[in-house]
Amino acid sequence: GLMCLEHEDEKVNMYCVTDDQLICALCKLVGRHRDHQVAALSE
């Protein structure tokens, strides 16, 4: 899978609806997407 741009060791596994961007779990937990609307990726 694709790796996160901000956290190079994390794979992107969710999608930020607010930013129209693929993000990883760390982005959602501690990153700038924590208050955004996110959706899980169905692979």
Rank of each mutant, 00 (worst) to 15 (best):
G1E: 13
L2F: 04
L2V: 14
L2C: 14
M3Q: 04
M3D: 10
M3G: 07
C4Q: 04
C4W: 03
L5F: 07
L5K: 13
L5S: 10
L5A: 10
L5I: 03
L5R: 09
E6S: 11
E6W: 03
E6H: 12
E6I: 13
H7N: 01
H7R: 01
H7Q: 02
E8T: 15
E8D: 06
D9S: 10
D9V: 08
E10C: 09
E10G: 04
E10A: 07
E10T: 06
E10M: 09
K11R: 10
K11P: 05
K11W: 04
K11N: 11
V12Y: 10
V12K: 15
V12F: 15
V12M: 09
V12I: 12
V12E: 07
V12R: 11
V12W: 05
N13H: 04
N13Q: 10
N13Y: 07
N13W: 03
N13C: 07
M14E: 14
M14F: 02
M14L: 09
M14G: 11
M14T: 15
M14R: 11
Y15L: 10
Y15V: 10
Y15E: 10
Y15T: 04
Y15G: 10
Y15H: 13
C16R: 02
C16W: 00
C16D: 09
V17Y: 08
V17Q: 15
V17K: 15
V17I: 14
T18K: 10
T18G: 08
D19P: 01
D19K: 01
D19A: 00
D19T: 00
D20I: 02
D20K: 10
D20N: 11
Q21G: 07
Q21E: 09
Q21C: 06
L22Q: 15
L22V: 09
L22K: 15
L22R: 15
I23Q: 08
I23D: 07
I23A: 10
I23L: 10
I23W: 03
C24A: 00
C24T: 01
C24I: 00
C24Q: 00
C24G: 00
C24P: 00
C24D: 00
A25H: 14
A25F: 05
A25P: 07
A25C: 08
L26F: 15
L26Y: 09
L26Q: 15
L26I: 02
C27W: 00
C27Y: 02
C27G: 01
C27E: 01
C27S: 00
C27A: 01
C27K: 03
C27N: 02
K28S: 10
K28W: 07
K28G: 10
K28H: 12
K28A: 12
K28Y: 06
K28L: 06
K28I: 12
L29K: 14
L29P: 12
L29R: 14
L29H: 14
L29N: 12
L29S: 15
L29Y: 08
V30M: 09
V30Y: 09
G31W: 00
G31L: 02
G31T: 04
G31F: 02
R32I: 06
R32G: 11
R32W: 04
R32S: 12
H33D: 01
H33L: 00
H33W: 00
H33T: 02
R34T: 08
R34M: 10
R34E: 12
R34W: 02
R34I: 10
R34Q: 12
R34A: 14
R34C: 11
R34H: 14
R34P: 05
R34V: 08
D35W: 03
D35M: 04
D35T: 09
D35G: 08
D35P: 04
H36E: 02
H36G: 02
H36N: 03
H36L: 01
H36T: 01
H36R: 01
Q37F: 03
Q37H: 07
Q37S: 11
Q37T: 09
V38A: 09
V38P: 05
V38I: 05
V38K: 05
V38F: 13
V38T: 05
V38M: 06
V38D: 07
A39R: 13
A39T: 14
A40S: 12
A40T: 11
A40L: 06
L41W: 10
L41S: 13
L41P: 15
L41A: 12
L41Q: 13
L41F: 07
L41Y: 02
L41H: 14
S42P: 11
S42Y: 03
S42N: 13
S42I: 02
E43C: 15
E43L: 05
E43K: 12
E43A: 10
